[in-house]
Design a protein around this nucleic acid. Structure first.
Length: 434
RNA sequence: GGUCCUGUAGAGCAGCUCGGAGUGCUCGCCACCCUGUCAAGGUGGAGGUCGCGGGUUCAAAUCCCGUCAGGACCGCCA
């Protein structure tokens, strides 16, 4: 037996004896010839059973059985890709496979979302479902590349934490050797601490939200792309870095996920050199003036507001991205820096993309005394935040950062209607398995 | 937590308003036919607790009540 090659390499191996291995994607039987389509990580290869080898067609070998095929590569114009394997010897590497919940070999996915998710270990083999995760991986690579080029250091912070950094109601509680502990809602506290060490840090990791949201854009566990940087003037410096990071993610997708982009017919967005921005208050005024509802007085933007603003940004600025700055302090976490020129408003921002909130970020408080005052203003004592406050006792620079929701990003890129389509084994209000 | 929608064969659906034998469609599955398929094609066949429980009725997939499961939107968030 010869060394294994990949399906995509067949055309360059014409005339040679080779081995390929993979899943039996499809068998097509005719009277005296049977075609086996073998799928591996590179693509599909055709194997022809005819003449003496035709007897192999009678072996029980349903689709998705894992096989190894040894044979001669032959050029043939009738073969997909122009080359195929003839006179094969076939070895079954798995038992005959049970049929998957839907036909993986069809170009279109014929199952609904619950069927896909219930059978995820198998259904994710479908090229269209796999493609979303190729795009996700390429996006993360772009995220890392862009930030590393800007001098950021990757960190890995604990996901089991002593106390909640955000409002305490929405955390998963654990039994930690008899003491209460929580799954981290965000790496916020640790990434700020690491600014004191590296100035610029980022993290790719899971975050956990025990919020009872039941929508097409919420998960109980998702992947957060976090960054935090020191020595900023204000949140505008953070937004510049975020713009370059998003551009890097788009470049990563284009460079490393070309086939997936083509398969799903994804249109990667253009990231403007300057992403347009609008202040929260101006955004509400604009909606009140032109849309048929009035959001003024609301402390936050509704999903309908966000969709409207994205349409406006597209028409007015030709941009699929829009920064909304200056959210009211009341709706931002206590560590958010206020806007010194606009009382009641913050130096926090959101980045909207294709109608959805994709990123939240902002400038943080950095002086110890400001933290004590912020906690006091919210009626909370410092005792619950001892280890958080510890960060600021020994000198921290002005800093800020952002967090990108990876699955939301991928969903907006691929046009997935439900975020679960681009989430590996999603965790939500109802789903804990597979 | 709220509002709305959907549960019918392995998958995806129609049938439900206006009750009349598990009726139908696309695909898969099984058998047979077909030298070259490309989501192959042809002929035949098997496969059902109409989510579950109760009620109304001579008669319920269909109407009513309850319940369970799933989906969309909203609140909130990334």
């Amino acid at each position: 037996m010869s060394a294994r090659i990949l399906a995509a390499d067949l055309p360059s191996q014409v005339g040679k004896q080779v081995t390929i291995a993979g899943w039996l994607h499809r068998r097509r039987e005719l009277k005296s010839v049977t075609f086996l389509i073998v799928r591996d990580r590179s693509g599909l290869a055709q194997v022809v059973l005819s003449g003496p080898a035709a007897a192999l067609a009678d072996v029980e070998m349903p689709e998705e059985t894992v096989i190894s095929v040894d044979g001669t590569v032959t050029a043939n114009e009738q073969a997909p890709g122009g080359a195929e394997i003839v006179q094969p010897t076939i070895t079954m590497l798995s038992d005959p496979a049970a049929p998957p919940p839907f036909d993986l070999y069809r170009p279109a996915i014929t199952a609904g979302l619950p069927t896909i998710l219930d059978g995820a270990p198998t259904t994710l083999r479908h090229p269209n479902l796999r493609a979303g995760f190729e795009i996700s991986a390429a996006s993360v690579h772009g995220f890392r590349s862009a930030l590393e080029a800007l001098g950021f250091v990757e960190v890995h912070t604990p996901k089991i934490v002593e106390s909640a950094t955000e409002s305490g109601a929405n955390v998963f509680k654990l039994d930690y050797f008899g003491r209460p502990a929580y799954l981290a809602q965000s790496p916020q506290f640790y990434k700020q601490a690491m600014v004191g060490v590296f100035e610029r840090v980022f993290e790719v990791g899971p975050v956990f939200r025990a919020e009872p949201h039941d929508t097409a854009r919420h998960l109980a566990q998702y992947t957060s792309l976090d960054a935090e940087l020191g020595f900023i003037s204000d949140h505008q410096d953070v937004m510049v870095v975020l713009r370059d990071t998003i551009a890097g993610m788009v470049a990563g997708v284009q460079d490393r996920a070309g086939p997936a982009v083509a398969l799903l017919d994804v249109a990667p967005p253009v990231v403007p050199a300057q992403i347009p921005q609008i202040h929260f208050q101006d955004a509400q005024d604009l909606i009140a003036k032109h849309a048929d509802w009035d959001p003024r007085g609301e402390p936050d933007l509704s999903p309908a507001d966000e969709r409207w603003l994205c349409e406006w940004a597209e028409l007015e600025h030709g941009s699929e991205f829009l920064f909304v700055t200056g959210y009211p302090m009341a709706k931002r976490p206590f560590y958010t820096a206020p806007d010194p020129s606009r009382p009641g408003f913050s130096n926090g921002f959101d980045l909207l993309f294709r109608g959805l909130e994709l990123v939240t970020g902002g400038q943080r408080l950095h002086r110890y005394g400001d933290y004590l005052a912020a906690l006091a203003a919210r009626g909370e004592g410092p005792e619950h935040y001892a280890s958080y406050l510890q960060v600021f006792e020994h000198g921290m620079p002005p800093h800020g950062g952002f967090a990108i929701g990876l699955e939301r990003w991928t969903a907006r890129l691929t046009g997935a209607a439900n975020i679960r389509e681009v989430t590996l084994f999603p965790r939500d209000l109802h789903r804990l398995a597979p």
